[in-house]
Amino acid sequence: MLVRIFGYFVSEAAVSLRRSWKVSLVAIVTIAMSLFIGGTFLLLTANLSRVVEEWRDEARIVIYLTADDLATEGSRVLEQASEPFWVTAVKEVSAAEARSRFENMFPSVRELFKDWEEEPLPPSLEVTFDPEVVGGERVDEWLASLRSDPAVVMVDDDRDWLRQLEALIAILTGLGAVVGVVLLTAAVFTIASVIRLTAYLYRDEIEVMRLVGATELFIRGPFYVEGFIQGLLGGLLAVGGLYTGYLILNPRASTTFLGNVVVDRFLAPEVLLSLLLLGSLAGLFGAVLSLRREKLG
């Protein structure tokens, strides 16, 4: 019985969608647009967050020393740096090593160092530590004491720019949420107008249905389903668009560092499902909204 009633709603909605496919398309496209743009933000922030997590797991500080001090004070600083229990490894990087690393990373500027007499880069100690084991404050204190060591030129803390990335992610997420919500609201109102228009076009039929004994459920049910279907189709369109965009950008992006970061992986299935659900609910909500006060027929 319930299945048959729902079947009735769906078939009525399908007929109506087919009959007024042009206006329906407008509704579907607005939903798709908002979900697509919202989804793009999600894609960016998801990839960025993943990268941040990966980096955070291998948080490092780099202690730069002068070449002279390395000989005399190196072992003392090294000892001081490896002392705390949260330090997992300390690696000495000589000036020569630093240069060859740099040359590998940026082959095009290799020529630049060719005629230098001195090593262009200072030697350093790379200290890997587990930030989970200890609170940030104790790490900060430890860093401060290292920084105040006269033999230490500079201490680089990865967490500084991880923090900046996190701030960027937060901004992107917020921006995405705002843009997404604004667009989705617009889409809801578009669907609402489309449904209201359809209901208006069918008002004579609706009146007849009422006169022969249709309850409110039977009058409104097909419209609710229609809104839901429009939202779902919009969601599918958005997901399809996102995936197409991802497929196009991904191979090109992997050659650049930023691209690699930003479009390395596609959205998780549950995120995609949420987008579809969001679209469908937006459509349904639009229908409910449009028929809220309407005395149909």
Binding site: R4, R19, E207, L211, G213, A214
Partner: peptide
């Protein structure tokens, strides 16, 4: 009710018009 002005639903066939009430009553 046999309406003086018929009040048939134009986009539905004769069969669908006639069986509208049975349909919303959930008849197979």
């Amino acid at each position: 009710v046999v309406f003086q002005d018929f009040r048939l639903i134009p986009r539905k066939t004769v069969l669908e018009n006639v069986s509208y009430l049975p349909r919303i009553l959930g008849m197979r």
